[in-house]
Design a binder for these strands. Structure first.
Length: 825
RNA sequence: GCCGGGUUGGCGGAAUGGUAGACGCGGUGGUCUCAAACACCACUGUCCGAAAGGAUGUGCGGGUUCGAGUCCCGCACCCGGCACCA
């Protein structure tokens, strides 16, 4: 037999890729059906790509992992929706267009065609009939429609505020797009600009975004839920009003420690909050203006640094402590943030480190009101205390030594006096959605001198982008659309007078906040989506994508879904019932980068090893969420295995349709156990282990052919057919080829999941481990039905066990028939 | 600082509280070959031993249990998130 192997048969990787691709195009086995409402459905979704150049390794991994599940679900008989599209608005296309003196559509749609071709070659089982691009007017018409729905309900509004500004991209950014003070996209240091911008009122949904995470617990990665919780930043406390002499409005502050109110010795207001400018006295105005100017110059990085010494300026006014009636100086300092809480705080230097640092810098009084056991007086040590302890200098809290109780008690007192109330504050800010760039969805609003902000009527949507090219797109700090004067000039839909269009475009995250709904009915013209189709397909059963969207896209999509729910447009409140974050593909311990020269090109790997081998390599490397170091894996090994698997199908010597029941029982047991176990493994997303089980099946089949039942045994055919089916989820081309070798008509991906014979899951004999004092001293081959008594007798008779029992007294025998006996001496 | 996740051979990784290291990579030896490649077979945690067998072993220290990689307590280190958020 070894002579045969010396010229081992093999399949032509490239030929079968071309062959089966054509067959799939003809058969369309991956289009979602939807015609039978009683058939159970599954929605598999992968984060749609941005059309930058060709696919890279990261795409290769997401598509491979997500397709395993889609294909498994199809084998299980579900009607599977597995759509693909492009997130095709965005800056890279615009920057390329400026450089090449083109319109961004050229770059965008060229890249989309390149990627589409690569994805087809990659054999992903997408339903291409539902393909969409967010930059198509037929798509963004509905993005505008949804914006207007938000506008109608007051969820989209315009306000003047200090916004994050990226000096490189020349546009404002949402908070979510500023990471540690730099632009999430380009890395430029972000500054602040006062601008009037559009916002979505995501803060209205803060509590629900938090509460509904309960539904996602266990189905979303814990770290993503944690990130969202951190980002939303719920904080319980109270607001407290401090009266100011000569002013009607009090200074309102948010505090989580109202119980330390007796320790408040001064107030601090954010310099860039309106309140500061209102409060400042004439004598202090010069100093304040200078300080405010310095604050504005500071970058987000500088502003957020905790290392920086505290600075501030006295505002020349005093506020009154509502509990003690004491007069407290009011300062402005940039350690207080304008857009959190009310932009003002009561400073309790003894029990807040920041306040203490400030107090020591400007020689302000420190008064301890909580005596924390084992901790020194903060005034002397310079270390603020925040723990529980007996309240001191706090008449209203006498006898209380518990923080929770103290807080409740003070809130009650403040409420009774009408100067405070318990409240909840969030870190989450409203979503700034305007962008001063061209290649995005125009905001469908007309500004009328008489009527104000007027929605563009439905029948006039979409508001299409004017065709601009090259230098006309160059960032100037204002939207390029403003330069298209003919486009801007329009009439007011309300009064018919002269008016102008809004010249900003939307953040591209708006486009992607609802695309999963559009997939359900991509051609629908009666609205953004057909409610009946959405009801049928949504919510998404598995969403696969990178963790970098943990708080951007995923939070926004959750918000959109809830808003649409409240509008009565969808029946569910969470769009993605399960989420999987694939790891990164790295090389030699480091992220791939041009500067390191360690990049691995997906296309090149496919050229060398073929699609199936690359996909198998990515799936087999480890758990889906773990990073893959390309230096640790072996696409050549994957190739070898696939050839081995195929060769078996080539050697099978029985006819299709032969009854497996007469086949070799030992091999049949392996086959049926593999099917049963893989089902469980797929369901728990352990695809790497699925591959390992299929490898074991192939090994067992090889052995049966070479030194057992032989290639003509029906069990060998059964094993090979199961191998082809399981393999079709990971390596679709070779699986089809095997299926054809086995004499079947395509497509293997449309076959029904094999039926497991429960009788074959039980072995004739099982290995029983015999332990003495918990250590393995012998093994027995016993029938699975063996009784405890029989097993104990056999165990005690085992020679090596008997040797270890010599001279010892048996105290207890634990029997877990038929697998284990533990003898305690 | 707060929150979340992790730590298993040379490497990637398997293990409903019951044989730790499945499967693969790499390595060693062999079959085939004039030779090589391909393929196939065997071995491969560490230490002692010719073998039988024994000792030891899942980041560290304790605990629960007949039995712990798995459960509980404490600690170290690594990765990720948030952080002048009052």
């Amino acid at each position: 037999m070894s002579t045969q192997h010396a010229e081992a048969a093999s399949y032509d990787v490239r030929a079968i890729q071309d062959k089966w691709r054509a067959v799939w195009d003809e058969l369309r086995p991956f289009d979602a059906d939807g015609s039978d409402p009683s058939r159970e459905r599954r929605y598999a979704l992968t984060m749609f790509p941005y059309p930058s150049g060709d696919l890279h390794m990261g795409h290769g991994e997401v598509f491979a992992l997500h397709d395993v599940l889609a294909r498994y679900w199809r084998l299980k008989g579900y009607d599977v929706l597995n759509p693909i599209g492009w997130d095709s608005f965005g800056l890279p296309a615009e920057n390329a267009a400026i450089k090449r003196n083109e319109n961004p559509a050229t770059f965008t749609y060229d890249n989309i065609e390149t990627q589409a071709e690569s994805i087809r070659r990659y054999g992903v089982s997408f339903d291409w009939t539902r393909r969409l691009h967010t930059s198509d007017p037929e798509y963004y018409r509905w993005t505008q429609w949804l914006f207007l729905k938000m506008f109608e309900r007051g969820l989209a509004y315009r306000k003047a505020s200090y916004a994050n500004w990226c000096p490189n991209d020349q546009t404002v950014l949402a908070n979510e797009q500023v990471v540690q003070g730099v632009c999430e996209r380009c890395g430029a240091v972000v500054t602040k600009r006062e601008l009037t911008q559009w916002y979505f009122k995501i803060t209205d949904y803060a509590q629900r975004l938090l509460d509904d995470m309960e539904q996602l617990e266990g189905a979303w990665p814990e770290r993503v839920l944690t990130m969202q919780r951190n980002w939303i930043g719920r904080s319980e406390g109270a607001w407290v009003d401090f009266a100011v002499a000569g002013r009607d409005e009090p200074i309102r502050v948010f505090t989580t420690r109202p119980d330390t109110l007796y320790g408040a010795t001064f107030m601090v207001v954010a310099p860039d909050a309106k309140l500061a400018a209102e409060l400042v006295s004439d004598e202090q105005r010069g100093d304040f203006d200078a300080y405010l100017e310095r604050t504005k110059q500071a970058t987000e990085i500088e502003r957020q640094s905790t290392e920086r010494p505290k600075t501030g300026v006295f505002l020349g006014v005093h506020a009154t402590n509502p509990l003690t009636g004491e007069s407290m100086p009011v300062w402005a300092a940039d350690y207080v943030l304008a857009d959190y809480g009310s932009g003002a705080v009561m400073a309790v230097p003894a029990h807040d480190q920041r306040d203490l640092d400030f107090a020591r810098t400007y020689d302000l009084p420190v008064r301890r009101v909580v005596d924390v056991p084992g901790e020194e007086n903060p005034e002397e040590t310079g270390v603020a205390t925040s723990g529980d302890g007996a309240y001191v200098n706090s008449p209203a809290l006498e006898g209380i030594a518990d923080k929770v109780e103290g807080i409740a008690s003070i809130i009650e007192k403040l409420s009774a006096d009408g100067v405070g109330e318990g409240t909840i504050n969030f870190r989450l800010r409203d979503w700034l959605l305007s962008r001063q760039r061209y290649w995005g969805c125009p905001i469908p609003i007309v500004h009328c001198p008489d009527c104000g902000e007027v929605a563009v009527p439905d029948d006039q949507l979409p508001v299409e982008l004017p065709y601009l090219t090259g230098a006309d797109l160059a960032p100037k700090g204002t939207s390029p659309l403003a330069a298209a004067t003919d486009w801007v000039r329009t009439t007011c839909p309300s009064c018919g007078g002269d008016a102008s269009r809004d010249t900003d475009t939307m953040d591209t995250f708006v486009d992607s906040s609802w695309y999963f709904l559009r997939y359900c009915s991509p051609g629908y013209t009666g609205g953004a989506f057909d409610p009946a189709e959405v009801k049928h397909w949504m919510p998404v059963d598995m969403y696969v994508g990178g963790v970098e969207h943990a708080i951007l896209h995923l939070l926004y999509s959750r918000f959109f879904t809830k808003a649409l729910h409240d509008m009565g447009l969808v029946s569910f409140v969470e769009p993605f019932t399960a989420l999987m974050n694939q790891g990164q593909v790295i090389n030699q311990g480091k992220a791939m980068s041009k500067s390191l020269g360690n990049g691995i090109d997906l296309g090149q790997q496919i050229e060398e090893f073929g699609v199936d081998s690359v996909r198998l390599t990515l799936v087999f490397a480890g758990p889906p969420e773990d990073d893959i170091d390309w230096a640790d894996v072996s696409p050549a090994g994957a190739s070898k295995f696939l050839q081995r698997a195929w060769r078996i199908s080539h050697e099978v010597a029985s006819e299709p349709g032969v009854d497996a029941a007469s086949g070799d029982v030992a091999l049949r047991r392996v086959t049926h156990k593999t099917v049963a176990e893989c089902e469980h493994l797929y369901d728990s997303k352990r695809f790497n282990v699925v591959v390992a089980r299929v490898m074991e099946l192939v090994n067992a089949t090889r052995k049966a052919i070479d030194s057992g039942a032989g290639a003509a045994d029906p069990a060998v055919r059964e094993a090979s057919e199961v191998t082809a089916m399981l393999l079709s989820t990971v390596a679709p081309y070779v699986a089809e080829e095997m299926w054809a070798e086995l004499g079947h008509a395509p497509s293997v991906s449309q076959q029904a999941w094999p039926t497991v014979d429960p009788a074959l899951l039980v072995d004739d004999t099982v290995t029983c481990v015999v332990q003495v004092k918990g250590k393995v001293r012998g093994k027995l081959e016993v029938p699975p039905s063996i009784s405890d008594e029989e097993l104990e007798a056999l165990a005690l008779a085992e020679p090596n066990v008997a040797r270890h029992l010599e001279g010892a007294e048996i105290r207890k025998v634990i029997i877990r028939a038929p697998k284990l006996v533990n003898i305690v001496v």
